[in-house]
Amino acid sequence: MAPVFHRGQLAIPVTCILMLGCIFPLALLAVFSVFEVDLDAFTLVPAFSGQNWVQMFTNPVFAFLIGKAVVSGAGTAVLAAIIGYPIAVSMTRLPVLWKGVGSIVLLTPLYTGEIVRIYAWRVVLGSEGLINATLKWLGAISEPLKFLLFSPFTTHLVLLYNNLPFMVLAIWISAELIDKRLIEAARDLGARPIDAFFKIILPLTTPGLAVGVFTVFALAAGDMMTPSLLGGTSGATPMAMIDNLFGTAFDWPLASALSLSLLVVLLVFATGFVGVLLRFDGARAVFRRGAR
């Protein structure tokens, strides 16, 4: 007779892979972060030094960079949610065929490489780019609008554009699961469409919103290319600094400490956002229904 597996046992291989692929490198980072570098021999020297962590907490540049990543990620997530909801909710009302088309259109930008998109944005937003050229031609401006490219505005516009599909998809799937009769019931009881949105759709899509916020926050806060290639002089990111420290500076311990700090801070914020969202009754109701 074939061996009978308990459902929980089926998770063992995956758990092992996760442990190896996630916990092990993190543990390694933690160990490296207390090592020292011998630049004469060019090797890492096992030590138990808190020096890198002291720097983490005392040098404001680290806090600034990590804080900037958090603000960037959170800002992008909030904007993506605000813009994403109308799109996602409209998609639930499309006929089935058009839903497929809609989701493909939504994802199309992701099929192009990030670099291609970045240079495309330069073509659109540049001093001699599409928008400035058009405005000039219309006589609306005489000098190009410089803030369009190489500014925090650009960074966030593009982060938003790049990550919006993830938010829309997450909310859309969540919204598709809402029983349409709940919306009808709300309308029937006197709710205008906007009331139905805030009282029914929004609460019952909080799980999708949470997934979207988590994803967009993580992707936007961890993006290095977009800020550095489109953000101009404002494009400093902790990721770029980690890259520098690991590579050129051969300061693996400091890089490890910064990586871990960034990871912990991002995780704390992401879990915080998701935790808050999932505490709402809407999310609980969705999970109960899923479990029943």
Partner: peptide
């Protein structure tokens, strides 16, 4: 040799 310092200044 203190390239980490340079990097910090740059950042």
């Amino acid at each position: 040799e203190n390239y980490s310092e340079w990097l910090k200044i740059w950042n």
